[in-house]
Simulated scan of single mutants.
Amino acid sequence: MGETILITAGGTGGHLFPAYALAAELERRGYDVDLATDERADKYGERFPGREVHVIQSETLRGRSPLALMRTAFRLGRGTLQALSLIRRTKPKAIIGFGGYPTFPPMFAGFLAGVPTILHEANAVMGRANRMLAGRVKVVALGLSGGSGGTVAPEKNVITGNPVRPAVLAAMGKAYAAPKAGEEFRLLIFGGSQGARFFSEMVPEALGMLDDAHRRQLALTMQARAEDLENVRDRLASIGIKAELAPFFTDMAERIADAHLVVCRSGAMSVTELGVIGRPAILVPFPHALDHDQALNASVLKKAGGAWPVAQAELTPARFAETLAQLMDEPERLAKAADAAGSVGEPGAVIRLADLAEHVCRGGDAKDFDKGDNS
């Protein structure tokens, strides 16, 4: 058996997917990798590639009343005790957290137990749970350059990029082929774990505003919540749109690679995967995201010329229909944006983060790693 590294991540795909990617790379290097989270880790259709999954109790801040704060503190405290017990059993050489409140008990327990810790921040702005932990960890790994880890502890920062799953790296090899006039136009729309309902309501109305030629050209793949599927399917069928609908697609990387245009939220991993695969996108930042992190994430691809961010409040059905028709008629513009998106992709992020993990296991810190002493 090899040395153990404990990874901890919240329950969303944006937290779990980079954790899975790192686990697979560390396991390939001979480490035993465990995952600590607060719920089932296979709900996105992928098995955790490491040794074992441990469910640790956690809680999100749900209010400011004394009772709510006491409840949160109790559950986080109980989770910390569970995590301390796990650390005593598995004796990890390092603990790596990928954000979300479920990472707080294992990361804080690691601090109490004297285990070296790495905090990975995927977004362009640091999340609240990570801000609570940043002062106590050894290294802060930033997924998007320009991330705000520096507002907490700049001397701990290392820019690693966001690790992507093997399926994303495989999809990276598919070149973008802009659609020719009159050919099928493959449009992919997804909303992630938050905000899919907006697309379910807006998109059918918008596509109904297209002329017949554009509607016949469209081949739509769209994520919709289970309770919205029948209504969305009926509305699209009534206007003659060919569509494949599902609450979740387990082969999303391949679908991104197959698309001529992607419309989605701008969570950190969506932005990262669009960059690695190299596909043009209309990005609609989730307006209720804490700290407006999705708007800042979207700016990464916008600055490169690979995406067109639009605020949800401004994306009316009429505007979406007009923008879509224009892009369908300008394949060279789409091809240029695909190249631009690909220019900011970081397919080597998982290697760099795994190198950093090994560096910290050997007692290194951010300063030594940045000097290149990471062999």
Results as ranks from 00 to 15, higher is better:
A295H: 12
G345W: 02
R279N: 09
A335Y: 02
P309K: 06
A268T: 08
E273D: 10
H288R: 07
L229V: 14
L274W: 03
I239Y: 04
A311S: 12
R265F: 14
D251C: 03
R255N: 11
V262N: 14
V232I: 13
V263K: 13
A335V: 00
A298Q: 06
L356D: 00
P317C: 07
K302I: 00
P309C: 01
L283Q: 05
T323D: 13
L296A: 14
E346M: 12
E273G: 07
G240F: 04
T272H: 04
A313E: 15
I241A: 00
F248I: 09
I351P: 00
I241Q: 02
P317A: 07
P317D: 10
E332H: 08
T250R: 11
A341E: 05
T323E: 15
I241F: 01
L229S: 11
V263H: 13
P280Y: 05
V232P: 13
L236N: 13
D293K: 12
V276K: 03
D258F: 09
P331K: 11
V310G: 02
D251Y: 08
V276E: 11
D228M: 12
M269A: 14
M328L: 05
F320Q: 04
D355L: 04
A318R: 14
A304Q: 06
V344F: 10
I282R: 01
R235T: 11
V232R: 12
